[in-house]
Amino acid sequence: MTSRVMLISPALNPSLRQARFDDGCSLDTAGALRARSAAGALPAADRTLVSPTVRCRETASELGLDAAASPGLDGLDPGRWRGRTLDEVGAAEPEEVARWLTDPLAAPHGGESVHQLCLRISRWLDEAARFSGLTVAVVEPEIVRAVTVCALGAPESAFWRVDVPPLSATEFTGRAGRWNVALGTTLGTR
């Protein structure tokens, strides 16, 4: 049995434009328009999921997807850094940010570490492997990073080295406990 998972990153919103830890901000006009222009570009899915964040739910809606919320696909919990920009946090807590970006076990913000996120996503990927057919999910960029790291068996230190552009599709195909990765199809560029 072959399982396919296509992860779609959300369209732009002010938080993504400002490198702000998720604050529940809606898509901006340009992001919503770009997502809407990509509606119909995705293959028919056997199962459609969405991260519970506002920008992921709105992206799924603009793409015309009737997606079920999946709390297991929630983004990385930034703890007390929620709503702040990376520049703000870096200026106030440079050592903590440096540690967070280099040590997958670190969670100086009081939220979830990269290691904890990868463990959670690894469990989700194991469940996805038991589903025959195509799963399409609109998820935060850090979920795409974590699935990529887990699928390739890469060290968690590689997490921050995976770039995930807005409104891009990354596909994972798995069989017999092994995943292949097809990277970076950008949606809505027709």
Rank of each mutant, 00 (worst) to 15 (best):
V144H: 01
R145N: 08
H115M: 06
W124D: 00
I121N: 03
D46Y: 04
W81M: 08
R123E: 13
G40S: 14
L187V: 08
P141S: 10
N180Y: 04
L152K: 00
A41E: 15
D103V: 13
V149H: 01
T29L: 14
G133H: 11
R178K: 13
L134F: 10
R57S: 07
T2Y: 08
A129V: 08
R36W: 04
T53L: 09
S113A: 01
A30I: 12
R161D: 12
L12W: 02
R57P: 01
G31V: 06
L49R: 01
E171N: 07
A128M: 11
D87Y: 04
F159I: 11
A68C: 09
W124R: 05
D74M: 04
W81I: 14
R145P: 11
H115F: 12
S122P: 03
A91G: 15
A146R: 00
D87R: 12
A41C: 12
L65Q: 06
I143M: 04
T185S: 12
P94L: 07
L42W: 11
G40Q: 13
T170Q: 10
L117V: 10
A45R: 07
T48Y: 00
R84S: 08
A107S: 15
G110M: 07
R82L: 08
A69N: 04
F159T: 05
A41G: 13
V139E: 01
R99C: 15
L42Q: 13
R175L: 09
L117R: 00
L187M: 11
P78A: 04
A45S: 11
G40D: 11
S51E: 00
A151W: 02
A32V: 03
P108G: 12
S51L: 03
P14Y: 01
E171R: 14
V164M: 10
L167K: 10
G188K: 12
A68Q: 15
A129F: 09
W124H: 09
Q18R: 13
G188W: 09
R175C: 10
D74R: 12
P141Q: 10
V54P: 02
I121Y: 05
G188V: 11
T186A: 14
R190G: 14
T2V: 15
G177H: 06
W179I: 08
E156D: 15
E93H: 14
S9C: 06
A67W: 03
R84D: 00
A154E: 13
V138A: 09
A41R: 14
D87P: 05
D46T: 06
W179E: 06
P52I: 12
S26C: 14
E95W: 12
G79Y: 08
S168K: 13
L152H: 05
P94K: 09
G79C: 10
F172N: 03
A91E: 14
N180D: 12
T173L: 11
A106N: 12
G72E: 05
D28T: 05
L63F: 04
G64F: 06
N13P: 00
V89A: 00
A154Q: 07
C118R: 00
A11F: 00
E96I: 12
R36K: 15
E88V: 08
